[in-house]
């Protein structure tokens, strides 16, 4: 029986990265070429399963012949490219990107890499001044703002949005990486319940006119949570355990199994702490789900909890 689809042949190209000749595939990005040879390039808005939006700019590298730095996550390699990932210009921009984010966003639940990078690049978020109190960011009108008084500096601090039983949105932790919008939209779910609204420093993730999720198109697939890099989007279970100080990843085990609902066969990764499921994810690298689930797979595990 014939079994496989035709695979297009890919050409190889050679580029220089940090003085090292690197051979990679035509169409690969600079980021992929760097990872192939073990050069760490920090990323925030990049995810393997999403088309690069190259907005966070923490992955910028110096490309000879290019006036500005270029985003490694989306720039394809071309034969003969000469790339520097550790030059002073690169380090300054990365330091400042991290510093600008850390000075305006609560990164307390962002992954460990972020904090390591902040240290390694020497970002100093505290040098920008005293943070202003939380504000009603959803009411900002494009093109109009009143500068803050008294030397305070703006942040994205705002109240947590909790309008349903399954997940919370804490946009004080949002770095506007667009991943949730992409996952909710064209890159996976196609529900388009959220989008980037407003502009400039007032840009934010929003439903139409900030209606609560139950009034929006949201179908609670949680694919936005699956891609959020900072914990701005979180299971209620995790949010509550963290609030009680009981969230402990060292006591969690992750087990892969298959969803007990429909016949598609989605792989679930069950995060279990104290014999309770506290979070459900799906592997990004599995062809069936690419990390995505539906509401039943993501949240429909309660029937198996407790003593039944």
């Amino acid at each position: 029986m014939t079994t496989v689809a035709p695979v297009a042949l890919r050409r190889q190209v050679e580029v220089m990265i940090d003085g090292q000749a690197v051979t990679t595939w035509q169409g690969a990005t600079i980021l992929e070429a760097c990872r192939d040879v073990g050069i760490e390039v920090p990323t925030l808005c990049y995810l393997e399963t999403l088309a690069p939006v190259n907005v966070c700019r923490v992955c910028v590298v110096e490309l000879e012949g290019s006036r500005a730095l270029v985003p490694a996550c989306s720039r394809p390699v071309a034969a003969g490219m000469v790339v520097h990932t550790g030059s002073e210009r690169v380090r300054t921009s990365r330091r400042m990107v991290l510093e600008l984010l850390a000075s305006s966003v609560d990164l307390s639940t962002a992954g460990g890499d972020v904090h390591r990078w902040i240290d390694e690049y020497g970002a100093r978020p505290d040098r920008h001044g005293e943070a202003a109190p939380p504000s009603a960011r959803d009411r900002a009108h494009a093109g109009h703002h009143e500068p803050l008084e008294g030397g305070l500096v703006a942040t994205v601090a705002q109240p947590v949005k909790r309008d349903n039983d399954q997940y919370v949105r804490d946009y004080a932790k949002c770095i506007l990486c667009y991943k949730c919008v992409e996952a909710c939209g064209e890159e996976a779910q196609h529900t388009f319940a959220i989008a980037v609204a407003g502009r400039g420093f007032d840009a934010r993730i929003s439903t139409e006119m900030d209606v609560a999720l139950p009034e929006s198109a949201c179908v609670y697939c949680g694919n936005c949570i699956g891609v959020c890099p900072t914990g701005a989007l979180m299971f209620v279970s995790e949010h509550e355990l963290r609030a009680r100080g009981e969230w402990d990843e060292s006591r969690q085990e992750v087990t892969s199994t298959i969803c007990p609902y429909c016949g598609v066969g989605c792989t679930l990764e069950l995060h279990v702490q104290d014999n309770r499921i506290v979070k459900v994810t799906s592997p990004l690298d599995h062809d069936v789900t690419s990390g995505n689930l539906c509401v039943k797979g993501r949240f429909g595990f309660e029937f198996a909890q407790g003593d039944r």
């Binding site: 039983d165 399954q166 999720l213 949201c218 609670y220 429909g300 029937f303």
Partner: peptide, 14 residues
């Protein structure tokens, strides 16, 4: 899902 034996267990916002 089906007769709700499994899906009835979680608080679906939908």
């Amino acid at each position: 899902f089906n007769t709700g034996v499994q899906s009835g267990g979680y608080a679906s916002p939908l």
